[in-house]
Amino acid sequence: MEAYFSLFFIAFLAATLVPAYSEIMLAGLLATGYDPALLWVFATVGNTLGSVVNWALGRYLLHFKDRRWFPFKEKNLGPAQRWFQRYGVWSLLMAWAPLFGDALTFIAGLMRIRLPIFVFLTFAGKGARYAIIVGLFDQFETYFLNTDWF
């Protein structure tokens, strides 16, 4: 169970301001035989809850935006703001994306997107990403381990 909670924690951190890569840990745990469905649940829930931290920062802590420690600088928010203005709340399905995904979740807080809608769309996008990773790993494993390559 410790491995699942470790994945949850890394996925949580990866969605916040801490640089972490939950996909690497997910692939490692898949390779060692952990249950793919449980790994998907722990990674998706952890990553979604980490995004809720960004949403809360956007919603409640904007008055700290000029502080050095504030996680999102104006230059990083620009592309995410344009994306959000163009596609609206549906852009949260892309919250998993590197570079602007975390900023999108912060912008959603700034835009005062209701938390249930935010969680639903963010969970759907992040869940799809982890499902693709699990599926690709399964295909990779099936192809390479069922051949005479190794």
Results as ranks from 00 to 15, higher is better:
Gln85Tyr: 13
Gln85Leu: 14
Arg86Pro: 12
Tyr87Ser: 04
Gly88Ala: 09
Gly88Trp: 10
Val89Ser: 05
Val89Phe: 12
Val89Arg: 04
Trp90Ser: 11
Leu92Asp: 00
Leu93Tyr: 07
Leu93Trp: 06
Trp96Tyr: 14
Trp96Arg: 02
Trp96Gln: 05
Pro98Arg: 08
Pro98Ser: 10
Pro98Asn: 07
Leu99Asn: 13
Leu99Ala: 15
Phe100Gly: 02
Phe100Cys: 10
Gly101Met: 06
Gly101Asp: 05
Leu104Phe: 08
Leu104Thr: 03
Thr105Gly: 00
Thr105Glu: 01
Thr105Ile: 09
Phe106Ile: 08
Phe106His: 04
Gly109Val: 07
Leu110Tyr: 07
Leu110Pro: 02
Met111Pro: 00
Met111Ile: 04
Pro116Ile: 11
Pro116Ala: 08
Pro116Asn: 06
Val119Asn: 01
Val119Cys: 04
Val119Pro: 01
Val119Thr: 08
Phe120Gln: 02
Leu121Glu: 03
Thr122Phe: 03
Thr122Ile: 08
Thr122His: 02
Thr122Gln: 00
Thr122Leu: 01
Phe123His: 07
Phe123Ile: 10
Phe123Cys: 11
Ala124Thr: 15
Lys126Ala: 05
Lys126Tyr: 12
Ala128Glu: 05
Ala128Gln: 05
Ala128Thr: 15
Ala128Ser: 14
Tyr130Ser: 07
Ile132Glu: 02
Ile132Ala: 14
Ile133Asp: 00
Ile133Trp: 02
Val134Gly: 02
Gly135Leu: 10
Gly135Thr: 13
Leu136Phe: 15
Leu136Trp: 14
Leu136Gly: 14
Phe137Pro: 04
Phe137Thr: 10
Phe137Gly: 05
Asp138Trp: 15
Asp138Cys: 10
